[in-house]
Simulated assay, not measured.
Amino acid sequence: MKTIHFNKTECGVDFLINVLHDAGIAATYMLPEIHNSDYFEIIVFKRGNGYIFIDNRKIPIIDNSIVFISPFQLKKWEVDLDKLDFTILIFKEEFLNEFFADKLFTYKLLYFYQYDHPATLNSDQDKIQGICNILQEIKSELIAPNLDSAHIIRSLIYYILHRLNRDYAVENDLPFQMDSANHAYAFKKLLEEYIKEKQRVEDYSELLGISRISLNKAVKKQFHQTATQLLKNRLLTEIKNQLLYSGQSISEIAYGLGYSEPNHLMRFFKTQTGITASEFQSGYQNGSS
């Protein structure tokens, strides 16, 4: 499977961020085969068509919409490239960490590492144009930087990421006030790092040095679901991805995720989805997922 890496030299920029708006780059970034990337993507569509598959979800690409993709999510495109009009904002996590001195910044944005709600945001023509105008201003600072360009880029990117976070929260009826203790966001970050090894909430409360009760309280306040629910949803996504893309048997996947018996994984999957793992694989292959 191909991984697309952020390359400052190829992008022609000095920062770990870039704005792309050119039909010629579509064939490079919108591949029809399964692939992933080592950066975040916010893709703003003025005109869309077809579908993108992100992990195990099939998402229609429509006019005046935005798609959010986190690093190393599996994806493939089924679109007519000539009929798209889009602008892509791409950036590495290190860029935000350096700019905002907050290693949990991306985990505070509701649309990234999101497994319970859509990876898209529908908007209107005026709002989409406003976002594109800001992205174009960022691009201008990137290609012709001045001494104060870093400050301007920082302010613009901070505004647009939080503006989209608010809109996404309103669209999906989610809270967007910040957890001052950061426990909920740290839990979300640890899930990305350890979900293949650790599937108990207690494992994560130990890593964070807090009680399970405190962790659950923080997660419920921030994400309106329990820590167990958040963990199960992330684990379910991991299992689905492996069922579809790993080439491994259900038994191999189960043992790789630490299950003592494949039946335990199969029971978890059926409880969460209402279908068996084999039915899920068959449905995806037949285009019903």
Rank of each mutant, 00 (worst) to 15 (best):
Q229P: 03
T273S: 09
Y284T: 00
T120Y: 06
I42Q: 11
V44M: 03
R212W: 00
I213W: 09
G247A: 08
S251E: 06
Q129M: 05
R57A: 02
G130C: 07
V79S: 15
Y204L: 01
H117W: 11
C132W: 05
A101L: 06
Y159E: 05
Y259N: 06
L164T: 14
N18T: 15
H35C: 15
F6V: 06
L235A: 10
R47L: 10
H162Q: 06
I128V: 10
L142Y: 07
S289G: 13
Y255Q: 09
R200I: 08
I54Q: 06
K240E: 01
I253E: 02
K127F: 14
H162F: 07
N7P: 11
A186S: 08
M178R: 07
R212H: 03
L96F: 02
E261N: 12
T87Q: 08
K92G: 10
V170F: 04
E252K: 15
I275H: 13
H264T: 14
K270W: 05
L81P: 15
K189G: 02
I250V: 14
A277Y: 06
S180N: 00
N233F: 08
D102I: 03
F86K: 14
N36H: 11
G209Y: 02
K270I: 08
A218R: 04
N122C: 04
L147H: 08
I210E: 10
E141T: 09
I275S: 13
P262K: 01
T28G: 05
Y168I: 02
P175W: 02
G258Y: 00
A254F: 00
E171F: 07
T228K: 10
I90W: 00
Q177P: 01
L81Y: 07
Q129K: 10
M266L: 15
A27Q: 12
I62C: 12
H21E: 07
A150D: 03
N233W: 05
I4L: 07
L121D: 11
F105A: 00
I62M: 12
Y185C: 03
I62N: 15
I4T: 14
G209T: 01
L230D: 02
S246H: 11
I160L: 03
D38T: 08
E93D: 09
M30Y: 04
E93K: 00
N36P: 04
F15G: 00
R57P: 01
Q129P: 01
A218W: 02
W77E: 12
Y115D: 04
E252N: 14
L31I: 15
F269V: 04
P145M: 04
F100D: 02
G130K: 12
I4D: 05
K58W: 05
Y158I: 01
V67N: 12
T120D: 00
C132A: 09
I128L: 05
F68W: 04
N49L: 01
A26D: 13
Q177D: 15
K58A: 02
I239H: 13
I34A: 13
L208G: 09
I153P: 04
T237L: 05
H21N: 12
R267S: 14
N286H: 14
I62D: 13
Q222C: 10
Y245M: 12
S214K: 12
